[in-house]
């Protein structure tokens, strides 16, 4: 009897802990996760609220970015070769950030339609393409597999 009771206590306590964890997780899934969109998603179908933090990715469009002579303000356009978004970013771009490179940016749309990035991610390797960007390019029908360089 007592053994059963102890086991019940154990299970009850476990359920309480799990319940709390589930509540925390559900609450966090509401507003702590960040969605990824391609420029085409934004242009064609998706409604994104101004205040919503999202990630967008694509290639840095040729001829839209120049290393700023002074200051830290970067302007560039990312494209999935069908649609594009212009990005504002204040800070230091990654080492291998350059035109034609696949990048992912995290930030919010401004009321004027420009996207203000808080973070710009480009991976360590020139050959590397962020998977989201590769997918976005495939969807826009512009995907060209990189040549194997080995």
């Amino acid at each position: 009897m007592t053994r059963k009771k102890r086991r019940m206590n154990f299970i009850l306590f476990g359920l309480v802990v799990l319940g709390i964890a589930a509540a925390l997780v559900l609450n966090a899934l509401e507003d702590k996760i960040v969605f990824f969109y391609s420029p085409s998603d934004i242009a064609t179908k998706t409604e994104v609220a101004i205040s919503q933090k999202i990630r967008v990715g694509g290639l840095v469009k040729k001829g839209t970015w120049e290393k700023p002579k002074t200051g830290l303000d970067h302007n560039f356009t990312i494209t999935d070769l069908r649609h594009e978004i212009s990005i504002l970013y204040k800070g230091i771009v990654p080492d291998i950030f350059r035109e034609g490179q696949g990048v992912v940016v995290l930030g919010k749309f401004q009321p004027d339609g420009k996207f203000r990035a808080e973070e710009v991610l480009a991976k360590h390797d020139e050959k590397y393409m962020p998977p989201e960007v590769a997918e976005a390019l495939k969807k826009s029908g512009k995907w060209k597999p990189l040549k194997e360089t080995k």
């Binding site: 802990v17 964890a21 925390l24 966090a28 899934l29 702590k32 996760i33 960040v34 969605f35 989201e132």
Partner: peptide, 18 residues
């Protein structure tokens, strides 16, 4: 269901209180 990223804000709100 779409591409999402689950980063520090999620874990700070769930794991840290536990």
């Amino acid at each position: 269901g779409g591409k999402i990223s689950v980063g520090p804000p999620f874990f700070n709100a769930t794991f840290v209180p536990l």
